[in-house]
């Protein structure tokens, strides 16, 4: 874990309201794994007070990329960080995806900004596994396919790709999925993850999911980001330290 002031190299609006922040942070970029995250202090002022967690979107040499949309004051400040300014980042945090195993095809399932961790994931797995990406959103503006491969899209309003949600799109492709040795890697809104969990249990697919929760510290001391465990009833797991990636069977979603 490092806390460092990372110089901002660029802030790009890659799509409608979706920003990509590029910072220079070799200490972190050289060790961070897909699915791990950073806790970012957007300003030194007392409001907004807490750091904001962001999964690492991509890594390129000494550069780290964070993907976000403007949700409130913190992300608004972040979107307008001038080139050459610095941001205080803490990381790498959490456990990341377990990329090993004897699967042949990694199936990415993401909804909305849940796509954020997968460019780095895709970069890391390219050449090692086949990749299929199922990306969903409410409408075409919510479908983020930046730096993903072999993308199938779903929108609930039908404005792009399959009309319906991303899990329905998986159902539609069930023959394809069953014909391969797959492992699913997912991130997205809670209703999507719930539906995905049923889908994975029904079809006996192995699935890792990156979860989200309000947190303060990001490294286990505030105990804020509790998540109910299926296996350990007597205590909560922490999204920041025990996750954010869990096997979908192990946690209550």
């Amino acid at each position: 874990m490092f806390i460092l002031n990372a110089p901002v190299e660029e802030t790009i609006e890659i799509d409608n309201r979706i920003y990509l922040l590029k910072v220079n942070a070799l200490e972190i970029s050289s060790i961070i794994k897909p699915g791990q995250f950073l806790n970012v202090r957007v300003s030194e002022r007392v409001s907004p007070l807490l750091r904001r967690p962001f999964s690492v979107c991509d890594v390129d040499g000494e550069h780290l990329y964070l993907m976000f949309n403007i949700m409130g004051e913190g992300t608004n400040i972040l979107a307008h960080k001038p080139k050459g300014s610095e941001i205080d980042i803490l990381g790498p945090l959490g456990n990341g995806f377990n990329l090993g195993g004897d699967y042949k095809t990694a199936v990415i399932v993401a909804g909305g900004l849940g796509a954020a961790p997968f460019p780095y994931f895709t970069r890391t797995l390219t050449g090692k596994k086949d990749i299929l990406s199922f990306i969903g959103g409410r409408s075409k503006d919510d479908v983020i396919t930046y730096n993903l491969k072999n993308v199938k899209e779903a929108t609930e309003d039908g404005s792009r790709g399959f009309k319906g949600n991303v899990v329905q799109l998986l159902e539609k492709n069930i023959e394809l999925l069953k014909s391969k040795k797959i492992k699913i890697f997912a991130c997205g809104p809670t209703p999507m993850l719930r539906a995905l969990k049923s889908f994975c249990i029904k079809n006996e697919f192995d699935c890792e999911v990156s979860t989200e929760c309000a947190m303060a510290c990001g490294f286990g001391i505030c105990q804020g980001c509790s998540i109910e465990s299926i296996t350990e009833q007597e205590k909560y797991l922490l999204v920041c330290k025990d996750g954010p990636v869990f096997n979908i069977k192990d946690v209550v979603i």
């Binding site: 007392v46 007070l49 807490l50 309000a214 505030c222 980001c225």
Partner: peptide
């Protein structure tokens, strides 16, 4: 075990926690 999530939220220049002595 402490309280069920959500246990933390940010407020102006502060935060609310309800960890519940986990």
């Amino acid at each position: 075990k402490g309280n069920p999530p959500q246990r933390i939220t940010e407020t102006p220049a502060g935060m609310l926690n309800a960890i519940g002595l986990a």
